[in-house]
Design a protein around this nucleic acid. Sequence first.
DNA 1: TTTCAAGATTTGTCCAGACAAATTTTGCTT
DNA 2: AAGCAAAATTTGTCTGGACAAATCTTGAAA
Lengths: 246, 246
Amino acid sequence: MGDEVKTPLYAEIFEVLRDEIAAGIFPVGDLLPSEASLCKRFDVSRFTVREALRRLQAAGMVSRVQGAGSRVLRDTPSGVFVQKYRSMSDLTQFAEETNLEVLGTKNTLLDPDLANRIGGNAGDPWLSIRGVRRMPDGDPLALVESFVPQRFAAIAPDLARGPGPIYAGLAEAAGEPIRDVEQETQAMPAPPQVAQALGLVSGAPCLCILRRYSSQSGTLIASFNWHLGGDRYIHRTRIGLGQPPR
Amino acid sequence: MGDEVKTPLYAEIFEVLRDEIAAGIFPVGDLLPSEASLCKRFDVSRFTVREALRRLQAAGMVSRVQGAGSRVLRDTPSGVFVQKYRSMSDLTQFAEETNLEVLGTKNTLLDPDLANRIGGNAGDPWLSIRGVRRMPDGDPLALVESFVPQRFAAIAPDLARGPGPIYAGLAEAAGEPIRDVEQETQAMPAPPQVAQALGLVSGAPCLCILRRYSSQSGTLIASFNWHLGGDRYIHRTRIGLGQPPR
DNA sequence: TTTCAAGATTTGTCCAGACAAATTTTGCTT
DNA sequence: AAGCAAAATTTGTCTGGACAAATCTTGAAA
């Protein structure tokens, strides 16, 4: 019964060309066929072909020069980076552009291991929220875990909305401004749980981001744990000025 | 007369909307006018408006949702990205992991144009060092130009080693600590010189990084100009902590 | 052989229109 | 007031065509 996701034509063409480039049918350094001939081959309008080529270009696989043609720059999408989400404020945007599917919430006592990881006191009552962030098209992007003290449970719904809105909410709930945000980033093979949630193959690279919000008095207010997978990654935002590098 | 640079319509519209967003005419969080009304306002086809909106979206300023409209996410474009080397400390690592092939050194008087670009005084005697940074396997990665006052010529060999080691050397030569490091990043098609040095094809994206070191008293100590190409990028290092995102 | 101009090729810009798909609004019904 | 279905709105996909601008190719002239 139906329910199939309809793929745009340009997306199909993009995939065909991407795979053919990967297979070496169009070697790196060579020109792709012209737009006109691709139109004939796929029997579509130039708009559709250009849309596909534009995506190949966005993936860093193809360079397009007026008058010269489209040249193959590399045979795989230039994954890893971040094309879109780069800095902390981008993370806010990330939260706004994606949807959270809440998998569950849990009241727990902070176990020593986690307490150590997020810098809280073991045994304190904390609240845990787990969910999957999806692109508007349903593509899973990240597995997110939020940790806050249970006394902040009232703003739990806001927590689900991401780092932007919660920022003010956290400060308000804590009764003082947020003084510091720390972030640790680590690349690792996707843990089974993450791989399953994000549809990754076992062993696929995944990016783990741990983020801590502290109040003015140094109290830990919240901790977020992101696991990002697939070909969309995020980088660490760091301060580098004023201190000579070693 | 003549010699004018023709700007595409969508580029003009992009700039108008970008500036209006920056000016707060379309506040962050609000919807932009619909494509149809923008068509009327600028008296262009929907294609042209969509092309402009697409660029606003690519700049991270606007989110577009089918059926809902285009929403303003931020009032300034967000910068460039990253693949391997990301922060200032990564640049140090970059310098340590790569070899510099010195192409030449030159004593020059700071010409007005360059003086303006790097913030020095025109006519001062400066030293210029050009070279290619290569990966251990010989793969060319970046074309680097270093500029320092000739009174620092003694540490020129160190300059060739990259930003890490020179940091201390510069401070020592200047007789006072380095107070500030400024960095400007720009993505551009590789200039011929750069393309040739790095073995890039015409039209390949290249990243231009201009870095200025200033002493405590505000004197410019050194300026470095990097052109990075191929599939290895660097992004602008920014400070994002302490201020709650809006 | 070299140089240069004309032509051919290829991508960039732009239009007008059509329908599809998603969301929001409206208004009726309960 | 609340729920729900229809209508209106808005962006997404796609066609066909036209001309401009940049690059490459060809061939004649020097």
